[in-house]
Amino acid sequence: MTLTTLTKDRERGFLDGQFVIAMPGMADSNFARAVVYICAHSPAGAMGFIINRHQAVTFPDVLSHLEIVPGEELIMLPREARDFPVQNGGPVESGRGFVLHTDDYLSDSSIPVSDDISLTATLDIVRAISDGHAPHRAVMLLGYAGWGPGQLEQEISNNGWLNCTAADELIFDRSLDDKYDRALALMGINPAMLSMEAGHA
């Protein structure tokens, strides 16, 4: 699925607003131990964002690259803008930025993902964050994860992924290194036992 199919008036698929969590045997290194928040799922495919991958790029780097704030003025950014989280959202269009955020910020270009979370991929939200007017909870993700028609469903049926209802607090939590284990815990799964069972498959 491409971003052009992610529209405000789309019908939500059964995986919309869910986590898909990579099984230990995931062959694709892009998704090893990945927790993906699915933003759109339909017969055309699925798209979402990995929420537990570090990114070396900082928000001031983004502002400088986009020429929103001159380099010499970056030191004067509000602290929340300097520290605004930027993560690796997936292997597709990895140079493009997206902001997942709570719905206290909405613009004409914001797309509702769930009842409480929206996605904005335009410069207006980047400028708002740089001015100290960030949504209550938000994260910038560079790139996204995408699947073609029926691909994600097939991967789930082949035991490549587990899926469960997403937890908003986990999406925005800045502690990334243990997020995989905590996502599995939402399903009552101990990662050590999952690894053991996968080894005997």
Results as ranks from 00 to 15, higher is better:
1 M>E: 15
1 M>V: 14
3 L>N: 11
6 L>K: 12
7 T>E: 15
9 D>A: 01
10 R>S: 13
12 R>L: 15
13 G>I: 15
14 F>N: 09
19 F>L: 02
20 V>R: 03
21 I>R: 03
29 S>P: 03
30 N>R: 11
31 F>N: 05
32 A>W: 04
33 R>S: 08
35 V>R: 03
37 Y>K: 00
38 I>G: 06
40 A>H: 15
42 S>Q: 15
45 G>F: 05
48 G>L: 10
48 G>D: 02
51 I>Q: 00
53 R>N: 09
54 H>N: 15
54 H>C: 04
54 H>G: 13
56 A>M: 12
56 A>V: 12
56 A>I: 14
58 T>F: 10
59 F>G: 03
63 L>S: 01
64 S>Q: 13
66 L>P: 02
68 I>K: 00
69 V>M: 10
74 L>N: 08
75 I>S: 13
77 L>R: 13
80 E>S: 13
80 E>N: 15
82 R>Q: 14
82 R>G: 07
83 D>N: 13
87 Q>W: 02
89 G>Q: 08
92 V>F: 10
92 V>M: 12
94 S>A: 12
95 G>E: 11
96 R>G: 05
97 G>H: 04
100 L>Q: 01
101 H>E: 00
101 H>I: 00
101 H>C: 02
103 D>K: 15
103 D>H: 15
104 D>V: 05
104 D>L: 12
110 S>A: 11
113 V>A: 11
114 S>Y: 03
114 S>G: 12
117 I>H: 03
118 S>Y: 06
120 T>Q: 00
123 L>E: 03
124 D>F: 03
125 I>C: 12
126 V>Y: 15
127 R>A: 06
127 R>T: 02
129 I>E: 07
131 D>R: 13
136 H>I: 08
138 A>Q: 01
140 M>D: 00
140 M>P: 05
142 L>T: 01
143 G>P: 01
143 G>Q: 00
150 G>M: 10
151 Q>H: 15
152 L>N: 10
152 L>E: 14
153 E>T: 14
155 E>T: 10
155 E>L: 02
159 N>D: 13
160 G>Y: 04
160 G>C: 07
160 G>A: 06
161 W>F: 03
164 C>G: 01
165 T>C: 04
165 T>P: 00
168 D>P: 11
169 E>S: 09
171 I>M: 00
174 R>H: 08
175 S>P: 00
175 S>Y: 05
178 D>A: 08
183 A>P: 01
185 A>M: 08
185 A>P: 11
186 L>D: 06
188 G>T: 12
192 A>N: 13
195 S>M: 13
196 M>Y: 15
196 M>V: 11
196 M>W: 15
197 E>T: 12
199 G>T: 05
199 G>D: 06
